[in-house]
Design a protein around this nucleic acid. Structure first.
Lengths: 176, 176
DNA sequence: TATTGTTATACTCTATAACTATA
DNA sequence: TATAGTTATAGAGTATAACAATA
């Protein structure tokens, strides 16, 4: 249950962790009525995979001075039909607070990657727009992003990707 | 590419996000040579699922004043054969920096959930041990934790869990 | 010299609450 | 009244670098 951006992990220490800690979790789990190892193992694997994924993409992004949160905002701004977004809409798309969006947009503006325009139809609101500089940066990064995604899944058959998507969807639907 | 603990998301706004944003990502993706929608969709689904998972378990843990990081340390401390861990070992198991472990152990000690003992064989090191209070807290929480894991996967057949584990392992192995 | 842990510092990402301006 | 955004504040979780003590 961890989200870390470290790159300090050698794969051997990772394996050691899995071998030792997972074994312990499995052994101790027998004490609990509801413990189901196949389920717990999937969960541990899932979190472990997420951690690795974040390390990988954070590193890839940092070469372009992007962070995951900034990347997400930039993606939203560059993929709209109108290309102008009220901060409240960004907040809804990102599922984060309005205050958080203020900070994220400030960071984008500070870097010259986005700008605020007043909304003629609502003087309380800002319309946030990606700048040419922001677009250039994102477009420079994305080929590497998608290449990496492709590389990661290069060992998967189409049916496996579909199957994994279905299983994840089922997993997600089970969560709430 | 997001890790947030919000609980503000209604499932309808989440669906809206998926419907709108994912569609845009797919449309725009055609511009990129390496873009492979089945792969990208799995990735988006994976991150979306992780977000939901963290919201769920963070909420479950917070009822016991636990956080994911604290939970992880407590699990390590309670699942050892000797039950005493050098901070450096915790750092290796958790894949985080030694400085981070200092802070985490401080937090545990402050709450009375763990204590430090001097290591007779190495005067530089501490041996960290879970306290009875820490054990009681963890054991009070774990049944709910495992029950929730079981509930989430209650719609899965054993073969599906195994299949998902295999796919995640393949995914993870593709990462680096 | 190398290792263990601490301290100092900083960064990213997030939240809530109180506020202003406007609808 | 309700909504859009800001500010102030906080907190979790992470890192690096310099350091002291010990191996």
């Amino acid at each position: 249950m961890k989200n870390q951006m470290t790159s300090s992990a050698s794969s051997s220490s990772k394996d050691l962790r899995t071998d030792y800690y997972w074994t312990q979790v499995r052994e101790f789990g027998r004490k609990y009525k509801n413990f189901d190892w196949p389920s717990v193992r999937v969960l541990l694997r899932f979190i472990d995979t997420y951690d690795g994924l974040m390390v990988r993409f954070s590193k890839l992004m940092s070469a372009y001075k992007l962070s995951p949160a900034v990347f997400n905002v930039l993606m939203i701004l560059s993929r709209g039909s109108g290309e102008k977004f009220k901060q409240h809409d960004i907040s809804k798309l990102l599922l984060v607070s309005r205050a958080n969006v203020t900070g994220l947009v400030n960071a984008l503006v500070r870097k010259g990657l986005a700008k605020r325009e007043s909304d003629p139809t609502d003087r309380r609101a800002w319309l946030v727009k990606i700048t040419p500089k922001g677009k250039v940066l994102l477009e420079a990064y994305l080929p590497y992003h998608y290449a990496e995604v492709g590389r990661i899944f290069s060992g998967f058959k189409l049916a496996e990707k579909k199957s994994m998507d279905q299983l994840l969807l089922k997993f997600k639907d089970g969560i709430l």
